[in-house]
Design a protein around this nucleic acid. Structure first.
Lengths: 226, 226
DNA sequence: TCGCGCGTTCACAATGGCTTCACAATCGTA
DNA sequence: TACGATTGTGAAGCCATTGTGAACGCGCGA
């Protein structure tokens, strides 16, 4: 579930925004000033930040500027009604959206979802990956080996895609877990073994002598390239 | 190279938008009122129009209305108003997206690209879509499966049409929502499930073992197999 | 004002994938 | 070769995802 950091110096606003976002199914962290906001970004690694422009001391723009040096987490600016032209320039810094107070809860949630969705889409890389006679079609989530079409589960596809994007590079189980589920929660690294097994069963002609997904003893797995 | 017409009576806004779109690789034409905007549309045949709602004399809605009589060029509405009802009016008139001032340039560029992408797909779209023994008549919004005629609601039709235009491609719920209601609005993604259920009930011989609208676990839905 | 159709939301059941575990097989090294 | 470490594998439980009926809200026309 997505985590959102809400930053505002007015407790009432924080409370309100938190309630609505929580109700919409997000995990919410809060901060009341720029300093603790930056600290919280490092601590809770939010997927999005709702940031009041008019913070005391370090204001919203300062925070955004500092933020951009170390992260590209999406930011939604929150502000009392102000002059347009000034803020237009200020927002060049990379805020992803902009909401003026007073705002409707529906609008806040809607924009939050919209920005998150856009951010996700931006991360998608190549659509077609080809190595040897294996092809991965990302939008279709489809794999073919030679002539055969192959059905993979989402996790299996992600593991294989991660390996295939950099053929020959060895990935540890931890890295593959990261690719699959994000840094968020740790699970048993050997779950990856199970996925590898299933991938091989579907992909390889002879799963006991794999030609595509190879084991690197004591390290992890790689795609081809001995 | 895509050409974009920017229409606003505030020179500062025009300047800003032009800079950003130019920088993003678009060719930009400008106009400062409704009359010259309409003239410019005929002259420069833009691929997209960024249109301020609050123009003097002929306002944005008037321009859109006039425009729609002779062209279906995509329009992004730009406005200071935030009322939701305004959004509805704008979108119903044929605006493709809606941005409230003040906005982030980043967002403007992103939405411009998104609308252009959608418009491209829409243009290559056949009026008649046929896959297997299912036929979609887009202008009439009619569907037939085999001999049976089928009645779908507007939203159901849109969902089905989106899937059927690219058979085999997997669409996430978010993508289907986009196709149905545009980026401007958001709702619970699982609303799509409800539409899928209703489509299946009407379309499939056996809704529990669908042959046309298939589920891709953990991702979304697709139409048939490629 | 009242239904009516449509889209959305909700709660709960059904389904399928992910993880875990135990043990077998294999690898590297002494 | 022998031993411990690492990996392969099948089965089982848990949990996320999906299916589904019902209820709600909203706009529209009677």
């Amino acid at each position: 579930m997505k985590t959102i950091l809400v930053v505002d110096d007015e407790p009432k606003i924080v409370q309100l925004v938190r309630d609505y976002l929580t109700h919409a199914g997000f995990t919410v962290a809060t901060a009341s000033d720029g300093q603790s906001a930056l600290a919280s970004v490092r601590a809770s690694k939010p997927d999005l930040i709702v940031l009041d422009l008019g913070l005391p001391q370090l204001d919203g723009l300062d925070v955004t500027r500092a933020l951009r040096r170390e992260s590209n987490v999406p930011v939604i600016m929150l502000t009392a009604r102000v002059e347009e032209s000034d803020k237009l320039v200020g927002l060049e810094l990379g805020a992803d959206d902009y909401i003026t107070k007073p705002f409707s809860p529906k609008e806040l949630v809607a924009r939050t979802r919209a920005v998150l969705r856009r951010a996700e889409n931006a991360n998608t890389t190549e659509e077609l990956i080809r190595i040897a006679d294996v092809t991965l079609d990302t939008p279709r989530m489809k794999v073919t080996a030679g002539e055969r079409g192959i059905e993979l589960t989402p996790t299996e596809f992600q593991v294989l895609a991660t390996l295939a994007r950099q053929p020959g590079r060895v990935f540890t189980r931890a890295q593959l877990l990261d690719a699959v589920q994000g840094v968020a929660f740790e699970s048993y690294e050997r779950a990856i073994d199970a996925h590898i097994k299933n991938i091989r069963r579907k992909l390889e002609t002879n799963p006991h002598q794999p030609r595509y997904v190879l084991t690197v003893y004591g390290v992890g797995y790689k795609f081809c390239e001995p």
